[in-house]
Amino acid sequence: MRVPPVWVRRVVLAPLVVLAAIVVTALLPAWLIATVLASLVIEPRLRTPRLLLMVDLYLLWDAAALVALFGLWIASGFGRCIHSPGFQRAHYRLVAWMLRFLFWSAHWLLRVEIEVHTPAGFHDDDRPRVIASRHAGPGNSFVLIHAVFDWFDRSPRIVLKDTLQWDPAIDVVLNRLPNRFIAPPSASGIRRPSDLGLQQRIRELASGMGPRDALVIFPEGGNFTERRRSRAIERLRAAGLNTAADRAARLKNVMAPRPGGFFAALDAAPDADVFFVAHTGLDRIRTISDVWRELPTDNTIIMRFWSVPRDEIPADRDERNDWLMREWERIDEWVEAHRPEVERRRQRRA
C-alpha cells in the first residue's frame, strides 16, 4: 500500500484521527451499553465491547500523542530546534510513555502478559547494540520496542516499514528521531531503485549510535506468513542457492533472513554488541479478523534475548551468511519449543 505524501499525512490524516477520537469517545457510552447487552446474549466473552474500548483507547492514544507532538513543535521554535539533543530526549520520553500506556491498556483489556528473558550482564554496560528480531506481526514489534525502552533503558533506532507512516502519531514522532522507514522488499527479490540506497541508509543510522543506543532491525523484511516463506525459498532457488533454500525450507516459524541490511549495521557499528531476539505469543494475530477471533487474547508473550560476541562473527561473506542462518535456525527451534507452553498458559487463563 503506497504511503501518501507528507502534506496529506499531516494536513488530512492527523486531524482526522483527532476528530475520530473525539467522536468515538463521545458516542462510547451508548455504544458500550448496546454492545454489552448484545454480547451477553451472543458471545459471553464480551469481544465486541473489548474491541470497541481498545479502538477508542488507541484513537485517544494517537490523538493525545499528536497534540503533545504539536506542542513540542511549537516549543522548539516551530521546528527550528526539533532535532537538538534536548528535544530528541523529550521525544524519546514521549514514545516511552506512549508504549507504556498502550501495554497497560492491552494488559487490562486483552489480558496480555509479557515475560522477558535476558542473558546475565545484559544491563551492565552503556555500549550501543544491534538487535535483530524475527518479525511476527506489528504487536510483537511494539512489544520489542517497549522492552528496549522500559526494561533495558535504551534509545532505539528502528528500521521499519514505510507503511507504518499511515498512523499519524507513529509517522510524526519516528520521523523526528533517528529511524529509517523503508519500502517492503519486492516479491521477486529483484532490487528496485528504492532499494539501492537501503544498506547505505542503515549504515548511516548505525554509525551514528552513541552510548545506550540500540539499532533494532528485522532481517526477514516482513511479517511471517506461509506465502512469504515460500517466496523466500523460491528466491533463493532462483539465485542458485539451493543449499540455503533447503535450509530455509526446514524453517517452520520464521523466514530466511535477508542479510544485507543487518551486515551493513554490523559493519557500521564495530563497537556495538549483537543480540538476537526470539519471541512467541501473538503469532496468530496479524489482521483485524485475527484480533476478533482471539479476543480476549489471554496471552503471555515470551521473549528471549541472547548475545553473540563480536569476535565470533565471521569476516568472510559466505561464512557470515552461514552464521546468520544458524542463528535464525536457533530462533526457529526456540519458537517451536515454546509455542506449546504459551498455548497451555492461554488455556489455563481462558
Results as ranks from 00 to 15, higher is better:
L52D: 12
Q347R: 15
I33S: 07
D322P: 06
L13P: 02
L102S: 15
R93L: 14
M303L: 14
M98F: 07
N299I: 11
T297H: 15
F275N: 00
W108C: 03
W61V: 04
R250F: 10
T163E: 04
G71Y: 03
R2C: 06
R330I: 00
E234Y: 00
L177K: 02
R228H: 10
I202F: 05
N140K: 13
S141K: 12
E113M: 12
A64Q: 09
W108D: 01
P184K: 14
A14E: 12
V254P: 03
L32E: 12
G86R: 10
R201D: 09
S207I: 08
A206M: 00
L72I: 02
L60A: 06
R180E: 13
W334N: 03
W328F: 06
L324S: 04
V12W: 07
F101E: 13
W7G: 01
V6I: 14
A183W: 08
V274E: 05
M1E: 14
P314W: 02
L205S: 10
D271R: 01
P49D: 07
R93V: 08
P178V: 10
D213I: 09
P156F: 08
M98H: 11
D316K: 08
M255S: 05
N242A: 12
A315V: 14
W292Q: 11
A245E: 07
F276L: 05
D311G: 15
R339L: 13
L60S: 11
W151P: 02
L282E: 05
T163C: 05
L13W: 07
T25I: 05
A256H: 11
F305A: 12
G222M: 08
R10N: 06
A238H: 10
R286H: 12
L13H: 02
L241Q: 01
H135R: 04
S76P: 00
F142V: 12
G137W: 03
R227I: 09
R304K: 15
L324C: 15
L66W: 06
V291R: 01
P44Y: 03
I145F: 09
A249H: 08
A64N: 14
D273G: 14
G71S: 14
H107C: 02
D153Y: 10
R47L: 01
I131G: 02
R191P: 06
L99D: 12
F152A: 14
F152N: 11
V148T: 14
R247L: 02
W323T: 02
A183H: 11
H107T: 06
R250N: 09
P85N: 06
V6G: 10
